[in-house]
């Protein structure tokens, strides 16, 4: 079995895959600002007695996950997502990934990524936009998709940024629009935002794979299909694609390596301490984070110059 860990800004996903890239065990957890606890919990849930032959980590917190697990490979989330998508849909041309706070587009040709883009500064095209609005409307996010599908005439909601979308939505509510029309409108506005901000200028060709947490939302999927005029395919493990990609990469590197460096599932019960301090050695005054366990420093990061980095 190969273990993949994807640590994003909103969630931690862990997955165990077998030789045939079938998902054997998995977990999806909200980070809730405590990534270390979330990683440990995720591993606890995918813990198994079968031997782990390799570990890969990905996502914006991939370095942290790599330190905790002592991973065999650390890979950026763009490559990890592309690899997983190309496995499930070998002729995929476009990967649309919308997650909690990040979204990306990856263009593939003959099974390899040839172009990509990630959202830069704006959250309007990501899942947090929906979460925020769902909360405001008092509707559980899980019901969002179903409700959106019931709409006959979606409200037009300006979606250039979350602030505008919100005031526009309040206005539409006051005009008496039904809640399903407003929600469908929000889905459309998220999709338009994504297409304008993230996918801007990229050739979107079929087959299109739509993955990431937001792909579970049927309202968004429908809005995306309408906007593109094309079918999009949502893989079964849409939320886990990053972690699956990381596990696949671990499987690949272990071809040339005999033994995994994985610390073992015992890390679920280990205590990890993080400490931070400000380095005053130059005017950059970097905030350095130190991770240790049992009095042993496992990693430090945060310096601009690299002086506190431990050699791995």
């Amino acid at each position: 079995m190969w273990l993949g860990v994807d640590v994003g800004s909103v969630s931690v996903d862990t997955v165990l895959i077998n030789d045939k890239i079938e998902v054997f065990k998995s977990a999806y957890l909200l980070t809730a600002g405590m990534p270390i606890e979330a990683i440990k919990e995720g591993l606890r849930k995918s813990r198994d007695s079968v031997p782990v032959l390799g570990v890969g980590t990905t996502g914006s917190g991939r370095e942290l996950a790599a330190v905790l697990t002592n991973a065999d490979i650390v890979k950026n989330e763009i490559t990890a997502h592309a690899i997983a998508a190309a496995h499930f849909v070998p002729d995929v041309r476009t990967v649309i990934e919308i997650g909690g706070q990040d979204s990306k587009i990856i263009i593939l040709k003959d099974g390899i990524p040839v172009d990509f883009a990630m959202n830069t500064v704006c959250a309007a095209g990501t899942g947090s936009f929906l979460d925020h609005q769902a909360q405001r409307l008092g509707i559980p996010i899980e019901k969002f998709g179903q409700l959106a599908l019931q709409s006959k005439s979606p409200a037009r909601i300006a979606g250039r940024c979350t602030v505008f979308a919100e005031s526009d939505m309040i206005h539409k509510q006051q005009l008496g629009y039904g809640i399903e029309d407003i929600i469908a409108g929000l889905c459309k506005s998220l999709v338009r935002n994504y297409l304008v901000n993230v996918a801007k200028g990229k050739p979107i060709l079929p087959p299109i794979v739509f993955q990431g947490g937001v792909a579970s939302n049927e309202g968004i999927r429908k809005a995306l299909e309408e906007e593109l005029g094309m079918k999009v395919f949502v893989p079964t493990y849409n939320k886990l694609m990053g972690a699956i990609g990381a596990a696949m990469l671990a499987k690949k590197v272990m071809k040339d390596k005999r033994k995994t460096s994985f610390r073992g599932f015992d890390i679920c019960d280990m205590e990890f301490n993080t400490q931070s301090f400000i380095c005053e050695d130059c005017p950059n005054t970097c905030e350095i984070v130190k991770i240790s366990s049992n009095g042993k420093v496992l990693a430090t990061w945060g310096s601009r110059c690299g002086k506190w980095d431990l050699s791995k």
Binding site: S60, K75, N76, T79, H87, I112, M118
Partner: peptide, 26 residues
């Protein structure tokens, strides 16, 4: 964020690497 820049640079370098091999040989 430097991390965000490095993520993109890494993915870009992967793209170059995969291009020379074609197909993820997994």
């Amino acid at each position: 964020e430097i991390a965000g820049i490095l993520t993109r640079v890494e993915a870009f370098l992967d793209m170059i690497e995969y291009k020379s091999k074609t197909k993820f040989n997994l």
